[in-house]
Design a protein around this nucleic acid. Structure first.
Length: 524
DNA sequence: ACACCTTTGAAGAGC
DNA sequence: GCTCTTCAAAGGTGT
């Protein structure tokens, strides 16, 4: 485990000279990227990156000097055991794929000491050869303690800890262009054939829009259908991606299975007559959100400990198991990246000949990181709405409910792999250099975290965030390694970053915690 | 038939 | 408070 010490702790070792280690691999790439500006698109970057990685592995495969290669390629320790995309991309590279560069540039944080400040509106200076620090989303959601204050927006909404800090300059809501929802799909007047672009993978025949298939996401209580004003009601749906569903046989309810898209709730009252949708027992919440009690008890999730009946009798495991089997499988709400994947998968597939999802996901993961903050904000906001709606539909649902409902071999395999990793790490630690990240390079969780915020402002030096993990190494936080800079450097840069953020966002940024410095070494 | 792969993010468990 | 695990989607691939 790394040794942790608060910046103010006075530890002499914090400023060890060998802690400030240049991160050539990452840094050079970024500098090149910044220097190139947008002339080279991220897709090209992705392509070359993948080719590079692939070639690096290919070249090393015949080499007998693993340690030497590792020294030359510090990121190798982060690379996945295999890269689905690399080989295909390399082939497609010559074949003329990825001709265009649709990728937006990485968001960079340019520190004042390094060049021009950010433009007030968040746009980057169009300058060419400047030094940028790649900056993932600074988590600027405002906690109860209000460590961030929007000096420009005194409205109550901006005092909420759920408000995205991204100020959308346009009157069009940022989620408007998202393709997750479809007007066509859920327009009451649209013919079913038109509404169902999905093709049965087995038959190849377009599937009719059976109500139970309109929304493969969430089973929905019939009692709740048509009564919940969708939080995205203002959103203009564009894509026929159903969101909520009732699995076939998911309900012991006399009414036919109904389905609802996250944005189709407003349509439900017209799509399903009152005869089909029983009136609520308790009416709507004044806010328009149904009171949790109106959720059908059929769908309502069992308590965490369903084995005890109301009468106090302990149910047999068999009974509990049967009840669990009867329960509809309410899926987790999609997070921002999942929503992004749903929208972009077809596009990526169309751009290349890849069909394998693992490879597509690699591309999508890289594209996700190359999105601008505004673009990512769309999906984070949408995901937040999805979670909000999900929690309204299934107030007692917990992610825990779905635990253990899939996979077995993976767990066993993971257990074996972890054992192997532990063993191999003991050998490799002394040979392989640490992957080097400076604190501002650590990807920060984007804003709009709705609940469970663990920190107010995530500017904590090298402290790794809960959900952070390396994105391209196939190695999760458990075995992540990095070298932090010295404490002085951290303090200096955090101060500069704070100033930049204030200029950049127009917000008053406060660092609620002294920088925490991890000493060089492994993070376990 | 079903798990795996692969990605990121959210949430829960456990310490 | 932190780390680790699980699951969301997707579809080709492997068992």
């Amino acid at each position: 485990m790394p040794q942790l010490a608060p910046a103010g702790g006075g530890g002499d070792d914090l400023g060890a000279p060998d802690e400030l280690i240049p991160f050539q691999d990452e840094g050079e790439e970024q500098d090149k990227g910044a220097g190139r500006g947008s002339a080279h698109g991220d897709l090209d970057e992705l392509k070359s990156s993948l080719v590079h990685e692939s070639e690096a592995r290919g070249a090393s495969s015949g080499s007998d000097s693993e340690a030497e290669r590792a020294a030359q390629q510090p990121r190798e320790s982060f690379q996945k055991p295999r890269d689905y995309v690399a080989e295909v991309v390399r082939r497609q590279h010559d074949a003329g794929f990825f001709k265009s560069s649709p990728y937006p540039a990485y968001p960079f944080l340019m520190l004042p000491e390094l060049g021009s400040p950010y433009l007030p509106n968040g746009a980057l200076s169009p300058g060419g050869a400047r030094t940028y620090l790649q900056m993932k989303w600074p988590l600027l959601d405002v906690p109860a303690g209000a460590t961030l204050k929007d000096s420009r927006s005194p409205s109550p909404a901006h005092l909420s800890n759920k408000v995205p800090v991204v100020q959308h300059p346009h009157h069009v809501h940022p989620l408007t262009p998202l393709l997750t929802y479809s007007n066509d799909r859920f327009s009451p007047g649209s013919p079913p054939a038109h509404l169902s672009p999905e093709i049965d993978p087995k038959t190849g025949i377009p599937r009719p829009p059976h109500p139970s298939e309109l929304s493969p996401y969430y089973p929905l209580s019939p009692g709740a259908v048509g009564q919940i004003p969708h939080p995205l009601g203002w959103l203009v749906p564009q894509q026929g991606q159903p969101v909520y569903s009732i699995p076939a046989g998911g309900f012991r309810h006399p009414y036919p299975a109904l389905a609802m898209n996250a944005s189709m709730s407003s349509l439900m009252s017209s799509r399903f007559s009152p005869h089909m949708v029983p009136p609520p027992a308790h009416g709507l919440h004044p806010s328009g959100i149904p009171h949790p009690t109106i959720v059908s008890p059929i769908v309502k999730q069992e308590p965490a400990q369903p084995s005890v009946s109301p009468g106090g009798n302990v149910k047999s495991p068999v009974t509990v198991k049967k009840e669990e089997e009867k329960k509809p499988h309410i899926k987790k709400p999609l997070n921002a990246f999942m929503l992004y994947m749903k929208e972009m998968r077809a596009k990526v597939v169309a751009e290349c000949t890849l069909k394998e999802s693992a490879a597509i996901n690699q591309i999508l993961g890289r594209r996700w990181h190359s999105l601008s903050r505004e673009e990512q904000a769309k999906y984070y906001e949408l995901a937040r709405k999805e979670r909000q709606l999900h929690s309204q539909l299934y107030p007692t649902w917990s992610a825990r409910d779905n635990y253990g409902k899939k996979k077995k071999r993976k767990r066993e395999k993971l257990a074996q792999q972890q054992t192997q990793d532990t063993e191999s790490s003991l050998v490799s630690k002394s040979k392989k250099p640490c992957v080097q990240y400076l604190p501002w390079e650590l990807p920060e969780r984007p804003p709009m975290q709705e609940k469970g915020a663990r920190s107010s402002v995530h500017l904590k030096g090298c402290k790794l965030h809960n959900s952070w993990r390396p994105t391209s190494g196939g190695v999760q936080g458990r075995s992540m390694q990095f070298h932090p800079p010295s404490r002085e450097t951290v303090s200096l840069l955090l101060g500069e970053a704070k100033n930049s953020l204030e200029v950049w966002t127009g917000l008053n940024v406060s660092i609620d915690d002294a920088p925490t410095v991890h000493h060089a070494g492994s993070v376990h």
